[in-house]
Design a protein around this nucleic acid. Structure first.
Lengths: 235, 235
DNA sequence: GTATGTTTCAAACGAGTGTTCGAGTTGTGG
DNA sequence: CCACAACTCGAACACTCGTTTGAAACATAC
């Protein structure tokens, strides 16, 4: 029987983290690094399997297709991150409801930065790979993956928009969405190290220490989010 | 004789905008759109030449190779943008020296946003294509292109760093570089429409009107740039 | 007219792509 | 021991890829 259906859907309708066999894991690990470094199109299955030390046909056996492999590589990291984000939001909103904390933009930002930071510092969960992969997904056009994301993780963005809206009263819904977009964008690309200075060969900065990144990025993002509303009219 | 050497280097050592034959231009136009939409690796020369209505071999005749074509596609837009940015910086610094204007972060930001905005609104110069292409170059790894950039356009980033440093006294050189990186990153990805909400299928926002983008992005970036320095210590 | 240099074109080249297939191997329960 | 499923493996399939070639078409100058 093919191992795909047995691992991805674990029975009920709830989202679940599939367990992978050792071979499948080796493939995922190798593919992750190569997708991040070379991009999905430029990475061949032969390179992946060679680096993973498995047979070429194993990819199609375990993942059906290259596209499905990419999706699996991404979701393996994205799932846990999203789960942790929702948990952070839960506790934050709990504390706010209990009057123990104010719902500030910084608190919201930290609730999604913290899981990303934890991931970045944990090599066992892919380290900085996930963020770099995400920054690629933002720019490239993985239609199939986007469908999965909007189907399975729509709740995430809905809840963040609502929380940010409450943290930033005085802003229209459109303005909130704009700042969400900009704030998340900065985080992922900053973590991923997509540095303009690097493109120009002036990369003294990107020391790639995740703590350093957070230190510089969070104040930047918070300042952007909390800046006074843009001009009143719509032109 | 091959037309490459005759167009790219126009004699002296100065950077020059090469003139392209009609066939070469058709190729550049088609390639630009496809590289932006599909990425360089996923775009085949056959697709480009078919869409451009030229023979397949024309690419290698006019541009030597696919890699060189990509570089040409990018530099055709980047060159004019960089030139205009330097011009804006010149006039800004001139007015500052004459005491007619203060050197604010916003003025610096606008000096690189304005050329990008002008480009985005001018279909004859590629419209929004250039910014989207740049956002891809930020994420992907075009080694050859990066060498060209750092060789030919190092001045651009040097001058911006210096200007921003003067506009933001009180910041260390490292902090200035960090904010440069973050500020430019936001601009390109915002213009390019690399929207997180879009990935999740909640894309009510990205109306893609360049003026709208500027309206929301500039205050965000300026607020981030001018925010108080991060914590004093280095941890 | 011929000669010369530039540009186009159809066809092919060899290498590399994702995917499939069927035989082989391994491991587990009866 | 056997049957049966899960898994691995080498070989092949049917393409597509970027690039090259050599002959034709075109332009320009003498």
């Amino acid at each position: 029987m093919d191992p795909i259906t047995s691992s991805v859907s674990a029975g009920d309708g709830a989202r679940s983290e599939p367990k992978y066999s050792e071979t499948a894991t080796r493939i995922l690990d190798a593919a992750e690094g190569l997708f991040v470094e070379l991009g999905m199109e430029a990475t061949s299955l032969r390179l992946i399997t060679q680096q993973a030390g498995v047979n070429l046909a194993a990819v199609n056996y375990h993942f059906r297709s290259k596209d499905a492999l990419f999706e699996a590589v991404f979701l393996r990291r994205f799932g846990p991150w999203a789960t942790e984000c929702l948990k952070e939001l839960d506790t934050l909103e709990g504390r706010v409801a209990a009057g123990e904390e104010a719902l500030t933009a910084e608190a919201v930002v930290r609730s999604y930065v913290r899981p990303a930071l934890a991931l970045s510092k944990d090599p066992a969960r892919g380290g900085v790979m996930f963020v770099r992969l995400f920054s690629r997904v933002l720019v490239e056009n993985h239609r199939q993956l986007r469908e999965t994301m909007s189907r399975q993780y729509g709740e995430l963005v809905t809840r963040y928009t609502r929380a940010l809206g409450r943290a930033l009263p005085g802003l229209t819904e459109q303005e909130v969405e704009w700042r969400m977009h900009l704030g998340f964008s900065v985080m992922f690309h900053a973590f991923a190290g997509n540095d303009i200075l690097k493109v120009f060969g002036r990369s003294a900065v990107s020391a790639r220490d995740p703590d350093m990144i957070v230190k510089h990025m969070v104040p930047f993002v918070v300042a952007g989010l909390t800046s006074p509303p843009a001009g009143r009219s719509d032109r």
